[in-house]
Each structure stands twice: as structure tokens, then as C-alpha cells.
């Protein structure tokens, strides 16, 4: 009995090795390890606080003096105006900007990316401590917190959910479907008809785009999320779904069967999802993530959904997504012409 169980277990392992499932066992811990290395702020230690101060604003001498004295924990960047501060904030070169609070003259407003974030908490705590040390009074220097990312916490997570949906269709659903058609020789059956290779590829990409858009629409209806710049939003969703659908079809062409396609799908899904979604929390990831098309989709999406950004300012990202999609589409076409792994 044990002999049989062992034989079957070894056979299952051999199958897992053959269809590349076992690679996930190695890849996921390795990926988590690398991602954790790239996260530069762990256990609540956010390192130096990078604060922006306006050059032409007359901060109280206690404030500037305290900030100067706290140079070990605080790095000051002097900015020309609020616009420059906002730009550096968006580029994640600073964690917050101290502005004049118009509602309460004499006090300060803190401009940050997100209210509910580790850097915001660190800035508020540090300034509270500095203020107590300098003045000993309980009146806080910072009396208001403004955020660049508008909306509730649910809305702030929306770009991440959308990225997940787009990548799910692109890297999990489509490669498996393409590989299934190859595995069952259905694609070859279709190529026995007068259809052209490019027609089949376009149909697959359209299917991926439709699935993605349906899922996003459903998410919006369920969450009652509205979009201010609807046209810009649709343009990016279409560019992203085209890019990742074409990418997914290409991944399907690299596999002989569905099991391999699922494995390779996960291998691509995680690296595309996590660095983009985690780049908010890590300087190192902000450097690496732009290489990924998922980041070029996620950042504009975030700007459109949370900062009322316009697609006109994001033409690089649009072109990038379109080029990646077109390139992978062309590679799929070449593989299909060569009857790759069919």
C-alpha cells in the first residue's frame, strides 16, 4: 500500500515538474524575498522624513529652527511654490509639504499623498514632538492635513483592484485559454478554415479586452464609483486591456498545455502586480517598477481616479502600453505562423 502511495506521489511530483507547476514553489518564496528586500520601510521604521518647505513662506522661527535641529530624522527640500511641492510629492521625492493653513491663519497645513499612510503618521508625530520640545505648549503647528489622493479609503484602493482585474484576465485567463486551444488542437482545426492568423489573434485580444472592461464596469456598478474624467479613464482602460490581453495571448503561445499556462501566468502576474501596487510604500520599488507595463498602467490610473488627472499629460504611458501590446501581438503572430508548440 505504502509502495503504491509513494509511486503515485512521485508520479504527481514528476507531473508537476513536467507541467512547470513546481516552479511556483520556488518562484513565490523567491519573489517574496526579493520584494521584501526592495521594501525599504519595514516594521514602521520609515527612515528619514523628507519634508518640503516653501521658499517664499515665512515659517515661524521655532519651526525652521526645530526642523534644522532634527536633521538626523528630517530631510528638508525647499520648493518654489505649492505646485513644485505637489510635483515632488507625486514623484515620491518628498513625503509631505508644509503649507499655510488658510482656514486657520498662523498655523500650517500638511499636504501628503494619502492621509492613511506611514509617512503621514511619521510627519505628524515628529512635528508634534518637535513642537512640544520647542514650545512645550499643546497647540499643534499642523492643524490640517490635505491629501492629493481624493476620496474614501475604498476609492483609494480602486486602482489596485483594477490593476488586479486587468492582470488577472491578461496573465491567468487568456494564456490558459490559448494553451487549451493549442492542447486540444482546436486552433489547428480553426486554421483548417479560411480564417487568417491575425484574425484569430485579434479576436482573442478583443475577448480579453471585453472581459476586462466587463469586470471593471461591474466593479464600478457594485462600488458606485464615479469617474470625473471618463474619456481619459476609458482611454487608459482600453490601452491597458489591449496591452495585457496581447501579452497574455503571447504567454499562451509559449505553453503547450493549460497547466503550464497557469504556472507561467502566475509567474508573470505577481511581479507585475506587486511592485506596481507596493511602489507607494517604497523608494526602491519606485525606481524598479516603471520598467513594468503594469506600473505604466497603474500610475496614470491612480492619477485619473484619485487626482482627476488627464490622459493628455500621460501620453508616454499610453504609447508605452500600446507598444508593449503591439510587440507581444507581433511575437504571437510569428509563433502562430511557425505553429509553435502546436
Amino acid at each position: 500500500m505504502i509502495r503504491n502511495i509513494l509511486a503515485l506521489a512521485f508520479n504527481d511530483l514528476a507531473v508537476a515538474l513536467k507541467n512547470k507547476t513546481i516552479y511556483l514553489i520556488l518562484f513565490i518564496p523567491l519573489f517574496v524575498f526579493v520584494s521584501l528586500k526592495l521594501l525599504d520601510r519595514t516594521d514602521g521604521d520609515i527612515g528619514k522624513i523628507r519634508i518640503g518647505l516653501l521658499q517664499h513662506y515665512a515659517y515661524a522661527p521655532q519651526i525652521t529652527g526645530s526642523v534644522k535641529a532634527a536633521e538626523k530624522i528630517m530631510e528638508v527640500t525647499w520648493v518654489q511654490n505649492e505646485e513644485e511641492g505637489t510635483r515632488l510629492l507625486q514623484e515620491k521625492k518628498i513625503d509631505g509639504v508644509l503649507l499655510s493653513n488658510e482656514k486657520e491663519p498662523g498655523s500650517l497645513a500638511l499636504l501628503v499623498l494619502k492621509k492613511e499612510s506611514l509617512p503621514t503618521l511619521a510627519i505628524v508625530e515628529s512635528f508634534s514632538a518637535l513642537q512640544k520640545a520647542a514650545e512645550g505648549s499643546s497647540t499643534s503647528w499642523i492643524t490640517d492635513i490635505k491629501t492629493l489622493h481624493e476620496g474614501s479609503i475604498q476609492r483609494q484602493t480602486l486602482p489596485t483592484w483594477i490593476l488586479m482585474l486587468v492582470l488577472l484576465v491578461g496573465f491567468i485567463i487568456l494564456p490558459a485559454q490559448v494553451a487549451e486551444e493549442k492542447e486540444k488542437k482546436l486552433l489547428l482545426a480553426l486554421l483548417q478554415t479560411p480564417i487568417r492568423e491575425v484574425q484569430w489573434l485579434i479576436a482573442k485580444v478583443i475577448m480579453g479586452m471585453v472581459l476586462t472592461m466587463m469586470a471593471i464596469l461591474f466593479l464600478h456598478l457594485l462600488g458606485r464609483f464615479t469617474v470625473v474624467n471618463l474619456f481619459d479613464y476609458i482611454a487608459f482602460i482600453m490601452a491597458g486591456s489591449f496591452c495585457f490581453s496581447a501579452y497574455g495571448v503571447f504567454l499562451g503561445f509559449l505553453c503547450r498545455n493549460q497547466a503550464s499556462a497557469r504556472t507561467i501566468g502566475v509567474l508573470f502576474y505577481l511581479p507585475h502586480l506587486l511592485p506596481s501596487a507596493l511602489s507607494d510604500f517604497s523608494q526602491k520599488l519606485t525606481v524598479v517598477a516603471p520598467l513594468l507595463p503594469s506600473y505604466q498602467f497603474y500610475e496614470p490610473l491612480k492619477a485619473i481616479l484619485l487626482e482627476d488627472g488627464r490622459a493628455g499629460n500621460m501620453s508616454f504611458e499610453l504609447v508605452y502600453l500600446f507598444l508593449v501590446g503591439s510587440f507581444t501581438f507581433y511575437l504571437s503572430y510569428l509563433l502562430m505562423k511557425r505553429r509553435w508548440l502546436m
Partner: peptide
């Protein structure tokens, strides 16, 4: 493609 019909060993 309309001149040659193919019936594979395993129905696809």
C-alpha cells in the same frame, strides 16, 4: 484550405 479536408486521429 477549402481544397483539403483533414480528419485527425483524435477529434478536435
Amino acid at each position: 484550405v477549402k481544397k483539403v479536408g483533414f480528419v485527425p486521429e483524435v477529434p478536435n
